[in-house]
Nucleic acid binder design. Structure first.
Lengths: 190, 190
DNA sequence: CACTATGTAGACCGATCTGTCTATCTCGGG
DNA sequence: CCCGAGATAGACAGATCGGTCTACATAGTG
C-alpha cells in the first residue's frame, strides 16, 4: 500500500493554523481558509464536519506541536535543570518560529480568549497548561522536596505564561529570555 | 444647567463591557449589545461612530477600571511592600468581581487576542501592562537597587500575568492568591 | 478498462453581520 | 406652551457568514 494519503486535509490544517494564529478564530472565515490552502470548499467539508471541528483539530495540533518542540529540546538534556530550562527553550522556539509573520503570544491562550466561560475547549487549554506544569514538577522532585517542587513548578509556570503574554503583546520574544534567566537562577538555588 | 447628561451612552458601555468580557468581542453583535442595554440601535450610532469605536472605548474603560481598583486598595497602604501587594490584591478583586458570571481572565488580554499583529489596540494593552510593571518598579526602588528593582518588577509582572492566565483558564482565582504569596516572600527577602 | 476515492469550481441557501434611514415619541428649558 | 434634543422601534441595505449541492476532473487499483 503505497498510498500517499490525502494532502488536502493537511493543506487545510496548516492554512487554518496560520490564519487562526495570525487573525484569530472567529475573524477567520471558511473562504479565507480554503483560499489560503488552495483547495475547494467541499474538500474542507469532506475532511471536517464543520468549522468547529476544524478549530478543535487546530487546538489539538497546537498542543502536540509544542510537545514535539519540547521533545526535540529534550534530546540534548542531561540533568533535571537542563530539562526544566528546555521547557523555556521550547517556548522561545515557538515564539521565534512565529516571529517573522507576526508573533502574537500563545496560540492556545489566544484561542481560549474567544471561547465562552463554560466551553469544553477552555478545559482543554487548562489541561495543556497543567501538563506543562506537571513536566516541571516531575523534574523538580529530583532536586528538592515534593512540597517545594509543587510550589516551584507553579512559580515557573507563572513565569512562562506571564512572559509569553508580555512577549506576545510586545511582538518580540525578549521577555521569554528574561523569564528563562529568572528560572535558571531560581532553580539553581534549590 | 442641571442636565442629567445622556444615560444611553453609559448603558451601552456597561452592557458592551459585560458581553465583550463574557463572550469575546467579535462574537458579540451590535444587536446583542443594544438588547442588553435596553436601547435603540440609533442610540448606539449617535454615541459611537462604529462598533470599533465602542470597542476602543471599552478597552480604555477597562484600563481605567483597574487603575480605580488599585487606587482603592492603595488607600489602606503604608509601606512599599503593602503597595506592591496591593497590585496583586487589585487583580484578585477584578477576578472575584467577575467570578459569579464566569471568570475568563484579563479582559484586556482577551481583547488583544482578537486583534491582528500590528493593530494599535495591541500597543495600548502593552502600555497598560508596562504601566503596571512601572508601578511595581517605583515601589521596589525604595527597597533595593535600581537594577534589582527592574529585574524584580519584571519578575512580579510575570507572576501577575501568568497567574491571571492560569486562573482564567481554570475559572477560579486560586492561582492569583498563590501568586500573591510568591510575591510576598520574594519581596520580603530584599 | 472500469471502478472508486478524492478533489475541483462555483452556484446557491438562509442566517446574521454592521450600519443607515425614517417616522414617531418624550421631556426639560426658555 | 412650544421647541428642539435625544430616544425609540423597526424596516432596510449590502456584505459576509457557515454550509449544501451538483457536475465534472483526476488518479491509483483491481
Amino acid at each position: 500500500m503505497t498510498t500517499i494519503r490525502t494532502p488536502a486535509r493537511d493543506k487545510l490544517l496548516s492554512a487554518a493554523s496560520r490564519l487562526f494564529y495570525d487573525h484569530g478564530i472567529s475573524a477567520t472565515g471558511i473562504d479565507a481558509i480554503i483560499a489560503e490552502a488552495g483547495v475547494a470548499k467541499m474538500s474542507l467539508y469532506n475532511n471536517f464536519s464543520s468549522k468547529d471541528e476544524l478549530v478543535s483539530t487546530y487546538i489539538q495540533a497546537r498542543h502536540e506541536e509544542w510537545l514535539q518542540l519540547y521533545a526535540i529540546r529534550l534530546e540534548r538534556c542531561e540533568t533535571p535543570v537542563d530539562r526544566i530550562l528546555a521547557v523555556f527553550d521550547a517556548y522561545i522556539d515557538h515564539a521565534e518560529f512565529a516571529y517573522d509573520h507576526g508573533f502574537r503570544g500563545c496560540g492556545l491562550l489566544n484561542a481560549a480568549a474567544e471561547l465562552p466561560a463554560g466551553a469544553p475547549g477552555r478545559a482543554t487549554m487548562a489541561r495543556h497548561k497543567a501538563q506543562v506544569e506537571g513536566i516541571l514538577r516531575d523534574e523538580l522532585v529530583q532536586l528538592t522536596s515534593p512540597d517545594c517542587a509543587d510550589v516551584t513548578a507553579e512559580h515557573l509556570s507563572f513565569l512562562l505564561e506571564g512572559a509569553m503574554s508580555r512577549a506576545g503583546l510586545e511582538g518580540q520574544p525578549d521577555r521569554l529570555h528574561h523569564a528563562r534567566s529568572l528560572a535558571e537562577s531560581l532553580v539553581k538555588t534549590l
